[in-house]
Design a protein around this nucleic acid. Structure first.
Length: 603
RNA sequence: GGGGACGUAGCUCAAUCGGUUAGAGUACCGGCCUGUCACGCCGGGGGUUGCGGGUUCGAGUCCCGUCGUCCUCGCCA
């Protein structure tokens, strides 16, 4: 914008307040030019007789110098919006600000116009320390003025833009799918929207465009993608918002390796364009069972070792009753070697509290040594047992080894917590390293805790490894799925699967899930019918863009890459959503409040 | 729904064991200052200690309830 505006500068009226340049672009090469800048008053320095203003816009900060003739300048306050016309001048060498890109020059003001007055802001845009998140969310427009937040949003935009370009190069067609759609029976809670035209009926907001994208494959679109907003009415976390964004895609006539290779090309291109980072492909693949066994997690941080080891065989030989008890109850004895860490007794005991997060009742520790070592486990590691345990855990003398004996799920989860805690405490990882892993071979179904009905581990449209589903009477729990996750540095970045394209297989899966013929017809009749008109084998994937943008920006909370995020109770503090509505509005959509809702609604 | 942490000036925080008129920095307002860039100096205003109740001679501080924020477990196909 600046070049064309500047070139027409000769034609400008003298009182034209509109900018000729941004606040980030003036350099020594502009010295002598008459320019106009628009922006916010970032900081002021009044020296009586001479007055400095740091003028800020998204592009940068330029120092404006106002002479004694600008008596009105002293009434400027932070965050006022002004227009300044003047001449770009070189600073004396002693006055150059090397910290700032525009620091070699300054704008000698000749004309000053106040475009908009600002009240004293509740957020100091210039400060390095942050106000409470509550304040930041309420005055989000001020929070977003902070250069750090603008950097985050620009980063997100570049990341998505690069990814979109990559998909277009790969021949993918961007298709929008409805936001007002139909409730799904499984998975997360749906956000519902009442229908005015159809009394008593409701739309649901999509948890993902899953069914639509499969139908686009049936329709022959071949390669679809979309930057898709998804909605799930579940409780929030630092990495979870109720409305979030995915790069959603689907492709026809493919198997797993085609999807992996495509995404590896897309991610290589995206990281190169948006971050200047060269990723190494192919990303290592990890079976779900192996991930759980080595890391105790299905989304491992593979940037460091400290892997879990099974020490059951050793435990049986030892005299430690706690270990024996766990094994007798069908549990596991798992361990990890933290290495030679200089932990105090107190620090070691703190690890027990970390392990408890995963449900472990205790965390046994042992400072390894062939002579028997030290710690609570030392007296059970006498003689040859010490050397044997050291060998099992690849331990050197002095290494701290940690043990959990419990049910498999508890032992894994607890040691995973310990492992991640050690990562942070010992700074074991490089935040700039991106360790991608494809996690494959998930079970197709899992059972609820009571051992009652089966649930899809991924979703009910996921293809089984064996199209026959093991035949009649087979154990659903033994079936393998063709779903996959992409994990990076301990975060699940996305997931996908090869889908079921045969209606009879889809029917059988619904049957196992306990979705009867009537419900099947009502909820998915259209999908089953679509599959019956010639469906190509297809599969796809969806990448969480909020998480991806946050991780690549080095942030651990996705709110910092979302312009208008919600609080932990799913509220928008700026616009005060959700909010009660007028009774007439409710009547229009055939809704009557009851119970608690009635008490809390507007008067 | 459960657990933990927090809520004091516009903002960030302090306030000993329950005890004088709740302080500081910053921001804001007024004054001074011609080379600052976290400018500096002088002065000033600013408080329902989230809200409600209780204990006490006395509550920012202790107790109960409630609202809000964050993290987390459950939950999130």
């Amino acid at each position: 914008m600046s070049s064309s505006a500047a070139s027409s500068a000769a034609a400008r009226r003298a009182d034209d307040w509109r900018r000729t340049h941004t606040c980030g672009e003036l350099r020594a090469s502009h010295v002598g030019q008459r320019v106009t800048l628009n922006g916010w008053v970032h900081a002021r320095r009044d020296h009586g007789g001479i007055y400095f203003v740091d003028l800020r816009d998204r592009h940068g900060i330029t120092q404006v110098v106002l002479g004694a003739q600008f008596s009105e300048a002293v009434r400027l306050s932070s965050e006022d919006v002004i227009a300044v016309t003047g001449t770009v001048v070189a600073r004396a060498p002693a006055n150059v600000n090397a910290e700032r890109e525009t620091g070699a020059i300054e704008l000698m003001a000749e004309r000053l116009e106040l475009l908009s007055k600002a009240k004293t802001p509740p957020i100091d845009v210039t400060a390095s320390d942050l106000p409470a998140l509550e304040t930041r969310l309420k005055y989000r427009y001020l929070d977003l003025r902070r250069p750090a937040m603008q950097k985050n949003l620009v980063h997100r935009a570049r990341f998505i833009s690069a990814m979109r370009a990559a998909f277009e190069r790969e021949g993918f067609i961007e298709v929008e799918t409805p936001v007002l759609t139909k409730a799904t029976p499984e998975g997360a809670r749906d956000y519902l929207v009442p229908s005015r035209v159809h009394p008593g009926s409701f739309f649901a907001l999509p948890q993902s465009p899953q069914i639509f994208k499969q139908i686009l494959m049936v329709a022959g679109l071949d390669r679809y993608f979309q930057v898709a907003r998804c909605f799930r009415d579940e409780d929030l976390r630092a990495d979870r918002q109720p409305d979030f964004t995915q790069l959603d895609m689907e492709m026809s006539f493919v198997e797993e390796e085609d999807v992996f290779a495509l995404w590896e090309r897309v991610l290589v291109a995206t990281f190169r364009a948006a971050l200047g980072v060269e990723l190494t492909t192919p990303f290592p693949r990890l079976r779900h069972a192996e991930a759980m066994e080595r890391y105790g997690s299905d989304k491992p941080d593979a940037r460091f070792g400290l892997e879990l080891r099974d020490v059951a065989a050793w435990a049986r030989k030892s005299e430690f009753k706690v270990f024996h008890g766990a094994l007798e109850r069908g549990g596991r004895v798992l361990a990890l070697n933290a290495g030679n860490v200089p932990f105090s007794r107190k620090e070691v005991e703190e690890l027990g509290a970390i392990a408890a997060l995963g449900g472990a009742k205790g965390l046994a520790w042992w400072k390894a040594d062939v002579g028997g070592g030290t710690g609570p486990l030392a007296r059970f590691a006498a003689g040859p047992l010490a050397a044997e345990l050291m060998s099992l855990l690849s331990a050197q003398a002095g290494d701290l080894c940690l043990f959990v004996a419990d049910a498999q799920a508890v032992a894994r989860k607890s040691l995973n917590e310990v492992r991640l805690h050690l990562r942070n405490k010992l700074r074991l990882v490089d935040p700039k390293q991106f360790a991608f892993r494809w996690v494959t071979h998930f079970p197709l179904f899992t059972r609820d805790e009571e051992g009652g009905r089966w649930f899809s581990e991924h979703h009910p449209f996921t293809a089984p490894e064996d199209w026959s589903l093991g035949g009649a009477g087979a154990d659903p729990g033994a079936l393998m799925s063709r779903s996959y996750d992409l994990v990076m540095n301990g975060w699940e970045l996305g997931s996908g699967s090869i889908r079921i394209h045969r209606p009879e297989v889809q029917e059988r899966v619904f049957e196992i899930l306990g979705i009867g013929p009537e419900e099947r017809q009502e909820k998915f009749g259209f999908l089953l019918e679509a599959l019956s008109y010639g469906a190509p084998p297809h599969g796809g994937f969806a990448l969480g863009l909020d998480r991806s943008a946050a991780l690549t920006a080095g942030l651990d909370n996705i709110r910092d890459v979302i312009a208008f995020p919600k609080t932990a109770s799913a509220a928008d503090l700026m616009c005060q959503a959700p909010a009660p509505v007028r009774p007439e509005q409710l009547a229009e959509v055939h809704i009557q409040l009851a119970g608690q809702a009635l008490k809390k609604s507007a008067p």
